[in-house]
């Protein structure tokens, strides 16, 4: 039995990739892991807000004045993001970038004017590309990391000569498992009153968003400026893929009624609360 485990700094975090197979060799697993990391790097370079040469930055610079042609990866992510905007009445909205820039959570884009009234409904996506009806800027931080994990996972599974290969990818808490049944999962909590919590995996993918790592700044924001009573400490969403899990954590965080959308995506959420009344939503 061969087994390898690697970790590389990517997507702004640590990406861990572990492979295990009864029939493949160490070097075959290493090759597959390379393939996975190449996929993640590719998505990182396409969708990073921080990289001025990324496709995303190009869209933000140009889409207000012309249709910008895009790759199928960006198309898929934008399509999913806009669908979520529609399903959440705009609570999930990738045109959040200006607000994140204001809060210094994203670097400020130079020479780009923004219409503060603009929102996701001003993003037009079709076969030829993407166009903004009003000047706006998008950030895919709430969804792209999950997509990168899914892409790497699928590339490995498709290429592997072992259909039973065990794959685990963990991109800073966005996890995807091949054999996830009965796998333990640890969700760290930052306060002693709330000890770390151990759960069992509920689906192939999980993502966790916490509200506690940015020193008083809420990293999860909505343009609808909703102030939640008893804001959770963290939300973990289990779903069939990481992109959905990643995006839905933000939804569960911000929505007063998150259940319906979880059901649409056959997802489950585990919410850790300050008052320790942690709960499952499914």
């Amino acid at each position: 039995m061969a087994e390898i485990s690697r970790c590389k700094p990517l997507l702004g975090t640590y990406v861990e990739l572990s492979l295990c197979s009864k029939i493949l060799t160490d070097s075959q697993l290493l090759e597959l892991s390379q393939l996975g990391f190449v996929e993640i790097e590719k998505i990182h370079q396409l969708m990073s807000f921080h990289e001025t040469e990324s496709d995303l930055s190009r869209i933000n610079r140009q889409a207000s004045s012309q249709v910008v042609s895009i790759t199928s990866d960006i198309h898929k992510v934008l399509q999913q993001a806009l669908m979520l905007s529609e399903q959440t009445n705009g609570l999930f909205d990738i045109s959040i970038a200006p607000l994140l820039m204001e809060q210094s959570l994203l670097p400020v884009m130079e020479n780009v004017s923004i219409d503060s009234e603009a929102n996701w409904q001003d993003i037009v996506l079709n076969e030829s590309g993407v166009r903004f009806k009003k000047p706006l800027a998008i950030d895919l931080g709430g969804i792209a990391k999950g997509y990168a994990v899914d892409k790497a996972y699928e590339a490995i599974l498709e290429t592997s000569k072992d259909p039973d290969i065990k794959i685990l990818i963990n991109a800073g808490g966005d996890l995807r498992f091949s054999q996830w049944q009965q796998q333990p999962l640890l969700i760290p909590t930052p306060f002693f009153e709330n000890p770390d919590i151990e759960l069992l995996m509920q689906n192939s993918a999980v993502a966790t968003s916490g509200d506690y790592l940015l020193e008083g700044k809420h990293a999860i924001l909505s343009k609808q400026s909703m102030v939640l009573e008893n804001r959770p400490l963290s939300v973990s969403v289990f779903a069939e893929n990481c992109m959905i899990a990643d995006a839905l954590t933000k939804w569960v965080f911000l929505s007063p009624k998150p259940l319906e959308l979880l059901q649409i995506y056959k997802a489950k959420a585990f919410i850790i609360k300050h008052d320790k009344n942690n709960e499952w939503l499914n």
Binding site: P9, A207, A219
Partner: peptide, 12 residues
């Protein structure tokens, strides 16, 4: 014991 951790993203 614990192998897999899903928490708020750590910056690299």
């Amino acid at each position: 014991q614990i192998k897999n951790i899903s928490g708020a993203t750590l910056s690299c």
